[in-house]
């Protein structure tokens, strides 16, 4: 089995109203040193294969086809 973690983040230049709201929440808690917050998603995936290269190829394909919307999001795949 191969375990992987996929991280999906908004591309630079794409406005993130949820990140902005979180910034406001942190500021109201007294965290005054926060310059910016960007919200993203994490997917922990377990694959049957034991071949890390095959796993990476499959996971990248999953990201491109469903897990990320490449119009607005970037993704990274990490075997853990």
């Amino acid at each position: 089995m191969t375990k992987a973690r996929i991280t999906v983040t908004l591309k630079q230049g794409v406005l993130d109203p949820q990140g902005k709201a979180i910034e406001g929440g942190l500021a109201s808690l007294g965290f005054t040193g926060v310059d910016s917050v960007r919200q993203g998603k994490v997917f922990d995936v377990e694959l049957q294969t034991t071949d890390p290269n095959q796993a990476k190829a499959e996971l990248n394909d999953m990201c491109a086809k469903l897990l990320a919307n490449t119009v607005i999001e970037d993704y990274s795949v990490e075997i853990i």
């Binding site: 794409v14 406005l15 109203p17 949820q18 709201a21 919307n69 119009v71 607005i72």
Partner: peptide, 17 residues
């Protein structure tokens, strides 16, 4: 339609949340 790629772009959370 945007998610299928038949139209370009994306729809995000309303600016007002």
């Amino acid at each position: 339609l945007l998610e299928t790629g038949l139209l370009p772009g994306a729809l995000m959370r309303n600016a007002s949340l």
